[in-house]
């Protein structure tokens, strides 16, 4: 995480320097983004020498980001369908999600991601940090158990792979 932010700052600074000293390319958003991505890629490849775990984790983080964006878009369309059709088909439930995440950062990230996916809203964390209460809009056939399994294997496992 620290290496990643340092790399982003370095890449932004380098791309601004690049555009200051060379006027070969037209200065617009697409080329700026491209140059930024090239610098990030070079820094990432250089990380294999001094920070191997960061080298391993970045592709997984990118895959997780795209999985999350896809999930968010699909669920938003589902909610939109629910809003514009007159009858309610939802079955709201409050389920208990037992946490495998231990540190505060992991729990915060997990709760934020659960909240940002439409249809689920994290209500509260119990005092001993073992249970996260989640308000779910849709129950599928498996009931509450299946929702818990989906959240645990979809979000928490991928998150824990990244942070440990």
């Amino acid at each position: 995480m620290k290496t990643f932010s340092i790399h982003i700052v370095i890449a932004i600074a380098l791309s601004y320097l690049f555009f200051d000293y060379s006027s070969l390319l037209p200065y617009n958003a697409a080329t700026a983004l491209l140059v930024f991505l090239v610098f990030i890629l070079l820094l990432w490849l250089s990380a294999v020498f001094y920070h191997p775990s960061y080298f391993r984790k970045l592709p997984k983080a990118m895959a997780f980001l795209f999985f999350f964006l896809k999930e968010m878009f699909v669920a938003n369309i589902k909610i939109a369908y629910e809003i514009i059709t007159p009858r309610y088909r939802m079955q709201p439930t409050v389920v208990a999600l037992p946490l495998s995440a231990r540190t505060d950062v992991e729990i915060t990230l997990l709760a934020a991601m659960i909240t940002l996916t439409p249809g689920t809203l994290s209500l509260d964390v119990s005092d001993d940090k073992k249970i996260l209460w989640v308000h779910v809009l849709y129950l599928e056939e498996g009931g509450a158990e299946e929702i818990v399994q989906k959240l645990k294997w979809g979000f928490e496992r991928r998150l824990l792979e990244l942070t440990t």
């Binding site: 809003i83 940002l116 249809g119 209500l123």
Partner: peptide, 9 residues
């Protein structure tokens, strides 16, 4: 709660 979980996102 339903409003909250549907709206903000």
């Amino acid at each position: 709660y339903i409003r909250m979980s549907a709206i903000t996102k």
